[in-house]
Computed example of a mutant assay.
Amino acid sequence: MRVQDVHETAVGALWNLVFNPGNALRMVEEEGVPALVHLCSSSRSKMARFMAALALAYMFDGRMDEVAVGLSSVENNGRTVSLEAARKLALRNIDAFVQTFFDPQSLTAAASSWAGATLNQVAEPPQSKKPGI
């Protein structure tokens, strides 16, 4: 199995887990945010980076806060895990991931490597229509 396939499978499983706010909180407690950040920023698989960014976004969309109810940190085996620090780390890396697509060359490369025609339309500048055509 290729490393990219392993990354995609692992991130896919984590992505499914974070839809449950309790699981998302548990991932923060067990230091899963740095693992997702690492995959988001360094995997050779574009799909794994994309899914890691989405998983981080779902983790910190506000639903986990309801489970944590007023806790600013969670005790984890004698260590204190700061939810706010984990949130900042996640959001900083989601932003870095998104920023890579503001470079037109990166966007074109991503478009041509993912879903062909559909994403290429996004990467190509709009063409003005001439009257009568």
Rank of each mutant, 00 (worst) to 15 (best):
H7E: 15
E8K: 14
T9P: 00
A10Y: 06
V11H: 12
V11T: 12
V11L: 11
G12Y: 01
G12R: 01
A13I: 04
W15L: 14
N16E: 09
L17D: 08
L17S: 09
F19W: 12
N20C: 05
N20P: 01
N20D: 15
N20V: 13
N20Y: 08
P21I: 05
G22N: 11
A24H: 02
L25V: 15
L25A: 15
L25T: 05
R26M: 12
R26W: 15
V28M: 14
E29D: 07
E29M: 13
E29H: 06
E30N: 11
E31C: 10
G32S: 13
V33F: 11
P34Y: 12
A35L: 14
A35I: 10
L36Q: 05
L36A: 09
V37N: 06
V37F: 11
H38C: 07
L39P: 02
L39K: 06
L39E: 04
S41K: 09
S42R: 11
S42K: 13
S43A: 15
R44P: 07
S45Y: 05
K46I: 03
K46P: 03
M47A: 11
A48I: 02
A48P: 00
R49Y: 09
F50W: 12
A52K: 10
A53W: 03
L54N: 08
L54P: 00
L54K: 08
A55D: 01
L56G: 01
L56I: 03
Y58N: 07
Y58L: 06
M59V: 00
F60M: 00
R63C: 00
R63D: 11
R63H: 07
R63P: 00
M64E: 10
D65G: 04
D65R: 15
E66I: 02
E66D: 08
V67L: 06
A68K: 14
G70H: 04
G70T: 00
S73H: 10
S73Q: 15
V74C: 05
V74K: 07
E75I: 11
N76I: 03
N77M: 09
G78R: 12
G78E: 12
R79F: 14
T80K: 13
T80D: 11
T80I: 10
